[in-house]
Structures are given as structure tokens and as C-alpha cells.
């Protein structure tokens, strides 16, 4: 999957969540996503950025413009060095939360995107990748 453009952002404070949303919007616009698809991927980015901040103790996001088989898309990779997730399957279920949220972050973000993958090791951190295609 060739990447044609990429940017990286730190997620250290709640203002950064807003910045992630704005960056995602810029990329979604460049890809030419429909208004609804833009809204979906921006919302997913907001959920995951907040997860990175609240549960991962901060981290970073890489936003990419990707191309595959003639399709363009926006891909986001959230990376933190936090406590990690012990039971990923459980974490993806709606209503599951280890903190103060509504427990819709991970599962919700998955539903809002075309591609979703997560890798996590307890004690080492979590990496979540999402993509939305035109």
C-alpha cells in the first residue's frame, strides 16, 4: 500500500484531540471522502485519540494518505506506550470500559471505518490502525 503523504502528531493533552480531528479532516477532504464518510472517520479519530490520551497515557498518531488498487484512502495509526489491553476482544465490546468513558470508543471506531486492526501487549503499549476508503 503506497503512502503518498504523511504527518505525525503528539497526543499529550486534550487540545491535541482537537488537533487530531482537524488533521484527519484535512486528509479526508484531500482523499475526497463523502461528507458522511468524512464525519465517520473524524469521529473515529477523535475516539481513538482520546483513548490514547486517557488509557495509553499519551502517545502519537500518524495520519497517512494511502492508495491501493486505484482507490484512495486515509489511514491513521495510534501508538502509545501505556499499560496495554489484556483482553482485546472484551475491549471491543460495546459498554466495556476500564475508565470513565461510555465504552464505545474502540468498538465504535471499528464500526465507523473500513479497516481496523489492533495490537497490544500488557505493559508495553497499544497500536490501533484504522482506514477509510473512498
Amino acid at each position: 500500500m503506497p503512502t503518498t503523504k504523511t504527518e505525525r502528531l503528539d497526543i499529550k493533552a486534550s487540545d491535541d484531540v482537537v488537533r487530531v480531528r482537524q488533521l484527519t479532516r484535512a486528509y479526508a477532504l484531500e482523499v475526497g471522502l463523502s461528507l458522511v464518510d468524512q464525519t465517520k472517520v473524524i469521529t473515529a479519530s477523535s475516539e481513538l485519540a482520546r483513548n490514547t490520551l486517557d488509557y495509553g497515557g499519551g502517545g502519537e498518531v500518524t495520519v497517512e494518505l494511502v492508495e491501493q488498487g486505484g482507490r484512495r484512502g486515509v489511514r491513521l495509526t495510534f501508538d502509545d506506550k501505556g499499560p496495554g489491553i489484556v483482553d482485546i476482544e472484551q475491549a471491543l465490546k460495546d459498554g466495556f470500559t476500564s475508565g470513565k468513558g461510555m465504552g464505545l470508543g474502540l468498538g465504535g471506531a471499528k464500526r465507523l471505518c473500513n479497516d481496523f486492526s489492533i495490537a497490544s501487549k500488557p505493559g508495553e503499549g497499544t497500536k490501533v490502525m484504522i482506514a477509510r476508503w473512498k
Binding site: L35, V36, Q38, T39, K40, T43, E47, D94, M102, L104, G107, G108, R111, L112
Partner: peptide, 14 residues
């Protein structure tokens, strides 16, 4: 509430 926002919220599960 805008249509796109409403659709997204429903998809999100809220």
C-alpha cells in the same frame, strides 16, 4: 444536528 453527524452517532452506538 446535521444529518452526517446523526448517522455517525447512530453508527457509533449512541
Amino acid at each position: 444536528m446535521r444529518p452526517a453527524v446523526a448517522i455517525t452517532l447512530v453508527e457509533l452506538g449512541l
